[in-house]
């Protein structure tokens, strides 16, 4: 039977997380003839559907272009997915804030368990997933007739470009959800790379001491490296950085090529969000900080001296290179 992948987007562009979840879906459907259908629900989403149709591994794109899906509310989107579920034995979404909002509803309405945040596909019904903030990894086998799955995207590569596949309208049904409505959105506009897809992440912790110092030290370093900016929960709680920069068990899970942790002690909950990074650098005053136990390179000393020095060293290096 076929696989349905629910596409994550912001009505403007397709989330790269979806292209990673598609890689997981392709591994689940790793037998000849398993079709993967991508569902794009929203309003005015033609460009997103066209983008989805060029992802390698997709067999078909279903488009539900309808005002009911404009605001990305979980109730109508879950109802749409459930109404389409008959032809699928596996329904997949990236574990983004939208996927996590919608997919458990889909699972409950289909009376199946959800398998949250898979990091490895062993076979069509068997998966690995982290528990206890990544301190243990479970192998679970589903006994349900269908599976609802969210994918931890940091564990999968982006699906490549493929041949254009057909785009067809989805049947959307009559469901209405007047009880929920969107009041407003406060989304940060940033020129920087997205935290979950950046190659380099520079993250700051409570040791930065204030929002001003966070901005004065972390941001220039990130800009120098073309990096995304992350933060520990302590830094976010203290108001040094916005909530969507939080890396950790309850924030974003990232696995960039290079993660530079500045003034972050390395609580289990923070490590859960970044320990799969390829190279980890820790810069901290406290040489006993747990972050050094997972760091490939450590630098011990005063952040407010070391971070400007690091930026200068990077600047002179790029000057020599060019």
């Amino acid at each position: 039977m076929a696989i349905l992948l629910v596409v994550d987007h912001d009505n403007t562009s397709l989330s790269e997380q979806t292209a990673k979840a598609l890689t997981a879906a392709s591994l689940i459907g790793d037998e000849a003839g398993t079709e993967i259908h991508l569902l794009v629900a929203g309003e005015g989403v033609t460009a997103i559907a066209e983008r989805a149709a060029r992802l390698a591994g997709a067999s078909k794109v279903l488009v539900a272009d309808d005002p009911r899906y404009t605001d990305g509310l979980a109730e109508p989107l879950a109802a749409l997915v459930v109404s389409l579920a008959d032809g699928y034995d596996t329904i997949v979404a990236a574990a983004t804030s939208s996927g996590k909002d919608v997919m458990p509803r889909v699972a409950a309405l289909l009376d199946v368990s959800q398998i949250s945040e898979i990091t490895e596909v062993l076979d069509r019904v068997t998966f690995k997933r982290p528990v206890y903030a990544g301190n243990a990894v479970q192998t679970v086998r589903s006994t349900d007739a269908k599976r609802a799955i969210t994918v931890r995207t940091s564990a999968f590569a982006v699906a490549s470009e493929g041949p254009q596949v057909p785009i067809v309208p989805a049947t959307t049904g009559q469901h209405q959800y007047p009880a929920s409505s969107l009041v407003s959105e406060q989304l940060a506009k940033s020129e920087r790379p997205d935290l979950t897809s950046a190659k380099v992440v520079v993250a700051g912790g409570r040791a930065l001491g204030s929002a001003e110092k966070f901005n004065a030290t972390i941001i220039p370093l990130a800009d120098r490296l073309g990096a995304a900016v992350g933060a520990s929960r302590a830094a976010v709680d203290a108001g040094y950085a916005p909530n969507d920069w939080q890396v950790g068990q309850t924030g974003k899970i990232v696995a960039p090529d290079l993660y530079i942790a500045c003034g972050i002690s390395g609580a289990i909950q923070h490590l859960a969000g970044m320990k799969d990074s390829k190279v980890i650098v820790a810069i901290n005053q406290d040489s006993e900080a747990p972050i050094f136990q997972v760091a490939d390179y450590g630098l011990v000393g005063d952040l407010f001296e070391l971070l400007p020095e690091l930026e200068t060293a990077l600047a002179s290096r790029s000057a020599t290179k060019s």
């Binding site: 912001d10 983004t96 009880a179 406060q186 989304l187 969507d244």
Partner: peptide, 14 residues
Amino acid sequence: VREVDGGSRTIRIA
């Protein structure tokens, strides 16, 4: 007010 990827969203629910 919901914490979401990229910021926050405010919704009204009955």
